[in-house]
Design a protein around this nucleic acid. Sequence first.
DNA 1: CCTTGACCTCAAGTCGACTTTAAGTAGCAA
DNA 2: TTGCTACTTAAAGTCGACTTGAGGTCAAGG
Lengths: 140, 140
Amino acid sequence: MDISEVVRRSGLPASTLRFYEQKGLIASVGRRGLHRVFAAGVLEQLSLIALGRAAGFSLNEIAAMFGADGRPRIERQRLLEKADELDQSIKQLTAMRDGLRHAAACSAPSHLECPKFRRLMGLAGAGVIGERRNGASGKK
Amino acid sequence: MDISEVVRRSGLPASTLRFYEQKGLIASVGRRGLHRVFAAGVLEQLSLIALGRAAGFSLNEIAAMFGADGRPRIERQRLLEKADELDQSIKQLTAMRDGLRHAAACSAPSHLECPKFRRLMGLAGAGVIGERRNGASGKK
DNA sequence: CCTTGACCTCAAGTCGACTTTAAGTAGCAA
DNA sequence: TTGCTACTTAAAGTCGACTTGAGGTCAAGG
């Protein structure tokens, strides 16, 4: 497969594939002239990378999970840790979601007058509610 | 209050307070010499900002929620939208968490042999599972 | 054979939310 | 008055995951 086919079948832009190759996340099996040639297995690897990203692993972490052979070497322990992290996130997001729904429905003239809202504010201010950089990206 | 007191009572570094002021998220009531002087209300505002951040709003979005007076002008509609986004996130994270737990427990020799794992991979590869930049930050 | 356009490389740019650094100022204690 | 610091500024740097741009190569189709 040449890169354009991988682009077509993975949905990722070529720039991302080159970037992933540079980072050691995927590898081309060789070149035809200058052009990269990929094995079919790269698609599976890309799915795995997407999965890792969705689970919240960084590209570096994901890279560390691939053996030099390209096959995944995933420690079950890491998976459980990440699952626990996700549990934490889920709890926080659930609290946040409920808080937002309440605030939207709340009859208090200003949100600042609503005790529930103030409680949520207090928690966030105290850092009890995790700092997130990005959650559900509302892509166009 | 001078900036050091806000630092002490909010837990945020002074650089962040200056940055927030520059972005128009907070305002000092004046200066004593060069030194900023803050009103007590700034602490409440900072909590509100923290809350907004935790809910997944960007600083710019949060800035837009404050009237020129400094009081929040929050549209209930926005809150409901964000709550729906969070619901989406929660569903995805829950699926991911369960998938990770399964993969960790799964008896298949390689994760690639596990049908559940492969299904999750497929979903992630197809972009069905949202792209996240950061979830539960495992801070030190 | 020649053109075309898909591919290549390397460097730099982007985005968000801050932090860091360098250089300067001034309130307050001694 | 001196001098210590805590404060000030503006600009640049950081981090992660890519994207973009400039300039170059070459495989394939006409």
